[in-house]
């Protein structure tokens, strides 16, 4: 195989994995902007997305497209319930306590998932077969990679439209900037926070579902993806819309190029090193300009 073909393969792989990280990072950002907390239950949203998809598509033989949307709605509902229950009624509103609360919720969700589905890794059928496609540059992908790209781009465009063009989206951004002023403008802050949890749930579910046919899924697959997505969010600038995409893609590329060109044994260390370097030079992340351009 030509060297240029290898490079092309590394880049394609990096972009695909990066796209997933980006979606996860977006999920973290949306809740962070609405509430100021880091929602660790985001990891479980990913696992649940994959497992819902598995249950519907494999166990109950539901049409894949329908299964996709039901799973998304299901996890969004779980996200909403988390907010309506424990988060909203927490006695303390301290950020650090709410963050610990999300860690606890994450454990409960994972434990429940373990009881429901067991610990086995399970496969989910690819959305449209597994016949490899050879790209002009020499890289090979499977159709699922195209799905991952297409769905990621679509999700990003829809989010952009929502936050920039709809009054509800603008209200969510307004709430992120200044809760008190938002309340004085007649925006129900509680409802905006509720939406943010539902959105993050849906985003996590999408990430979990589109990767499941490649990596298989289990009750705890979301932990690794969640942490990588979190790293991507920090890399891009926590809370920043464009930063999440950039952070995800950079992290994906770093891992893939690091493994391919430098050393597969140290690829995570390489990615981690770059992350630290960026944070050292720009503590707020690549796109981090304080409050500006938050989602």
């Amino acid at each position: 195989m030509e060297f240029s073909q290898q490079i092309a393969q590394y880049i394609i792989t990096g972009l695909t994995i990066g796209a997933i990280y980006a979606i996860v990072a977006m999920g973290f950002n949306i809740i962070h902007n609405a509430t100021g907390i880091v929602n660790f239950a985001q990891c479980e949203f990913i696992s649940l997305g994959g497992m819902f998809m598995y249950s519907l598509a494999v166990l109950f033989k539901v049409n894949l497209i329908i299964a996709f949307f039901i799973s998304m709605a299901g996890v969004a509902l779980i996200g909403a319930l988390i907010e309506m229950g424990p988060i909203r009624h927490a006695r303390s509103k301290e950020i650090i306590i709410l963050i610990f609360l999300t860690i606890g919720l994450s454990e409960i969700l994972r434990g429940t998932a373990q009881v429901v589905w067991g610990t086995d890794n399970v496969g989910v059928p690819a959305f449209s077969g597994e016949t490899p496609i050879h790209l002009p540059g020499g890289a090979a992908i499977v159709p699922q990679h195209i799905w991952i790209f297409a769905i990621t781009v679509m999700v990003m465009l829809m989010l952009r439209y929502f936050f920039k063009k709809t009054l509800m989206g603008k209200a969510m951004r307004a709430t992120a900037v200044n809760r008190r002023a938002a309340a004085l403008a007649g925006i129900s802050v509680n409802r905006m926070v509720l939406f943010s949890f539902a959105f993050s749930g849906a985003l996590g579910a999408v990430a979990g579902m589109i990767i499941a046919p490649i990596s298989s899924t289990s009750y705890d697959t979301g932990i690794m993806l969640g942490l990588k997505g979190f790293a991507a969010a920090i890399l891009g600038g926590y809370g920043n819309f464009a930063g999440a995409i950039l952070g995800g893609i950079i992290l994906g590329l770093l891992e893939s190029l690091g493994a391919g060109l430098i050393s597969s044994q140290y690829k995570d260390a390489i990615a981690f090193f770059v992350l630290l370097l960026v944070l050292f030079l720009k503590p707020r992340g690549i796109m981090g300009y304080g409050e500006s351009e938050r989602v």
Partner: peptide, 15 residues
């Protein structure tokens, strides 16, 4: 207490 990163128009719309 304006919504700083939002545009002037968006601020008015949210009103």
């Amino acid at each position: 207490h304006l919504f700083g990163p939002l545009t002037v128009q968006e601020n008015l719309e949210i009103g």
